[in-house]
Each structure stands twice: as structure tokens, then as C-alpha cells.
């Protein structure tokens, strides 16, 4: 199962161009959802206004070189490792889910566009990446959704209470789970279950990518943008009006470590 390209097997019954067309429609839905959200929520306007305010409050000018260095450092340190979540389970779960999703999507696009034509053999590495990505998404995602999400951990709501904010994470988990189940039943030869999970896989993809406007999908774009803006504001001295770091040595170390916010 892990070394078989499920899209290539599917291409034996459905034409590769139909599968590729579906992926392109999903990409178009992402762009459309984000653009409508930008217009409606005015997120980009907020970012530009914030940048203007920061420029007015800046204590020093930062050059293009320094700006590039800050952006690169933010990408490597803050964005690639989800540094804003601090050290702990939430960060591990998020990083696992994030990289799992990236691997899952990249491998999907590569296998759909590169290895679905008749007579094309898929290198074993791509199905492996696709399956490992889906498993990582499931592990990180279910761990987060069942145990770590704040409304369960800090607000003491039951795990089965579903809210609108769950649209993104649940649709993503449904994609990864049904994708894995589809691949499993395809390789084991259970035709009925294979088609059942294929339909569920397609449906969850439509919900995930078609629901971008209503879901938290766009946080993948806004959060990195906000992290870059925050670090640039720290560097130019505007710091969103926050005081500078205190000129004092560390005295308490881990002795002053915060408790988990679960005193409900």
C-alpha cells in the first residue's frame, strides 16, 4: 500500500485529465476563497495600515539587507517551527500536522500531474511521502483536536463539541483519513470500500478547499505575514508600542515556568 500511487490506479478507470482537472479546480477554490475573504474581512488592509503605523512609530530605519535577514530568520525560526506556540505539546502537534499536510499535498500534486499517464511508473518515494504525510497529518491533527485545542483544554468543553473553527481541521483530517483508507482498500482489492472511501475523499477535499472563505484555511498565509511584521516591528523599534526587553539578567530560569492554562 505504502509504495503504490493510488492516483495511478484510479487513472485506470477515470481519465488522468479528469483527476488533474479536479486538482486545478481545488487550487482555484483556494485562490477564490482567500480573495473573497481578503475583500470581506479586510485582512490585507489591516496589514498595510499596521505597517504604516509601525513606520511612523519606528525609532530607526532598517535597510533592505537587514530586512531580508529578518524575514529569512523569521521564516526559518518562527514559521518553519511554529515558534509562537512556545515549547510544548501544541507546538509538536502543529509542526507534525503542518509538515504532514505539506508532504501530503506536494506528493498528491506530483503524483497526479507526473505519474497518472498510462505506462508511467511512479518512483516509490512519492507514494511513501504521500502516505507518511497523511499519517503525520492524522497523528498531529487528532492529537490537537481531541486533547490540545483550547476550548477543550482551557475552557473545559467536551471533545465532541464541534464549532465553526473546526471546519478546517476536521476537513483536513477527513481528507487524510479517507485518503489513507481509500489507498488501503484499493491495494487490498475491496472494490466496494475503495469506492466508498474515494467518494468520501473527494467530498472532504471539496469541503476543505471549497470552505476556505468560512474556515481557518487562510491562517497559513496570514500567520507567517503577522510573524514577519512582528519581527520587523521589533527591529525598527516601533514594537507595536510594547516596551523593549528589560535590561536584566535571567534570575529565575525554569523556576518561574508557567502552568498549563487548565484551572477551570
Amino acid at each position: 500500500m505504502m509504495s503504490i500511487n493510488p492516483f495511478a490506479t484510479l487513472a485506470e478507470t477515470i481519465s488522468p485529465s479528469a483527476i488533474q482537472g479536479f486538482v486545478l479546480v481545488m487550487l482555484a477554490l483556494i485562490v477564490l476563497g482567500i480573495v473573497i475573504q481578503m475583500i470581506h474581512h479586510k485582512n490585507v488592509t489591516y496589514f498595510f495600515n499596521n505597517a504604516k503605523k509601525a513606520k511612523l512609530a519606528a525609532e530607526r530605519e532598517i535597510g533592505a539587507g537587514e530586512k531580508t535577514a529578518i524575514i529569512l530568520k523569521t521564516v526559518v525560526h518562527d514559521i518553519a517551527t511554529t515558534a509562537e506556540l512556545g515549547a510544548g505539546k501544541r507546538r509538536i502537534a502543529h509542526v507534525m500536522g503542518m509538515y504532514g499536510t505539506i508532504l501530503f499535498w506536494v506528493a498528491s500534486v506530483v503524483m497526479v500531474f507526473g505519474y497518472t499517464a498510462a505506462g508511467t511508473a511512479t518512483p516509490t518515494v512519492w507514494p511513501m511521502i504521500w502516505h507518511v504525510g497523511a499519517i503525520m497529518t492524522c497523528v498531529g491533527g487528532y492529537w490537537f483536536w481531541l486533547f490540545l485545542r483550547v476550548d477543550v483544554l482551557a475552557e473545559a468543553h467536551p471533545w465532541y463539541r464541534i464549532i465553526k473553527a473546526d471546519l478546517f481541521v476536521l476537513a483536513l483530517l477527513a481528507c487524510a483519513t479517507t485518503g489513507l483508507a481509500w489507498s488501503y482498500f484499493q491495494s487490498s482489492g475491496s472494490t466496494g470500500l475503495e469506492y466508498l472511501f474515494l467518494v468520501l475523499f473527494i467530498t472532504s477535499n471539496i469541503v476543505l478547499f471549497g470552505g476556505v472563505y468560512w474556515s481557518k484555511f487562510a491562517h497559513m498565509i496570514y500567520k507567517p505575514g503577522a510573524a514577519i511584521q512582528k519581527n520587523l516591528a521589533e527591529a525598527d523599534g516601533s514594537r507595536d508600542n510594547l516596551p523593549p526587553l528589560a535590561d536584566a539578567p535571567k534570575q529565575f530560569g525554569l523556576g518561574i515556568k508557567r502552568e498549563q492554562p487548565k484551572h477551570y
Partner: peptide, 8 residues
């Protein structure tokens, strides 16, 4: 605005 640095 306020900044709390626990370790310090």
C-alpha cells in the same frame, strides 16, 4: 502596554 519576562 506591558511586557512580562518571567525568567528575568
Amino acid at each position: 502596554r506591558v511586557r512580562r519576562e518571567e525568567e528575568k
